[in-house]
């Protein structure tokens, strides 16, 4: 198995988080589609409330415009993909040249759009799934585990915010445990501690209460 530095581990984790954030929010945004008063998912005001962001939009289109393209909005799809891409630039050799290309294609496609049209956005989702697939095919097991870790934390974070049922979470935890067993406990601790220092979140605690839970 390849070697991974602490810096790389940290970036893989964030890559996982931001790719997942983009995908997850793309799905949720799609569900706000439909009848404005009775959407399948949430109304946009509720959506904003879940994320804890300002909801003063003139209409649903303005809301979508911001959630897709606003660079300053840390929950916008463009922001997530930009950040994921920035991490991936460092990780090109770790995640593989091909995996990198899918992220770039996703990023390029979204960046070239001006207005929200879910048909045009579909290739972005395709590329992101291609990225997950490429990662599974090509990347080192430890690399995969690090990215999955970030992915799982993001799933959990968003599920909490949107008050999802437990099913989705259970599935994600199972997937993560499957992946994480390739890592040494010391490795978990190292990464978690590095993340604690950087993000001000108690990952070490989370690691032991959630993943290694009895």
């Amino acid at each position: 198995m390849g070697l991974i530095s602490l810096r790389t581990a940290n970036q893989l984790y964030w890559l996982g988080r931001y790719v997942q954030r983009a995908l997850d929010l793309l799905h949720r945004l799609y569900e706000t589609h439909g009848n404005e008063t009775a959407p399948v998912g949430l109304r946009f005001e509720e959506f904003c409330e879940c994320l804890g962001i300002e909801s003063e939009f003139a209409n649903r289109d303005a809301f979508l415009q911001s959630l897709f393209f606003e660079k300053e909005n840390s929950y916008s799809i463009l922001f997530s993909l930009t950040t994921a891409y920035e991490n991936a630039v460092f990780l090109r050799n770790t995640i593989g040249h091909e995996g990198f290309a899918y992220l770039r294609l996703a990023f390029n496609t979204l960046e070239s759009l001006r207005v929200v049209n879910f048909y045009d956005v579909k290739p972005v989702i395709d590329y992101l799934y291609a990225f997950w697939g490429s990662l599974d095919e090509c990347a080192d097991r430890r690399v995969r585990a690090m990215v999955r870790w970030g992915k799982w934390v993001e799933i959990r974070d968003l599920a909490g915010r949107f008050e999802d049922s437990d099913d989705k979470l259970e599935k994600a935890v199972g997937q993560l445990q499957e992946n994480l067993h390739v890592l040494e406990v010391a490795e978990h601790l190292n990464v978690a501690q590095a993340l604690d220092r950087e993000g001000g979140i108690d990952f070490t605690n989370e690691l032991f209460t959630t993943i290694y839970r009895p």
């Binding site: 810096r7 790389t8 040494e184």
Partner: peptide, 25 residues
């Protein structure tokens, strides 16, 4: 591996790559 300066350390007679798992190479 692609490394930056602080992924490596000099200890005694050799240079090492610091792996996140705690071992070094």
């Amino acid at each position: 591996p692609l490394v930056f300066g602080n992924d490596l350390e000099v200890d005694g007679e050799y240079v090492y790559f610091k792996d996140v798992g705690g071992h070094r190479e």
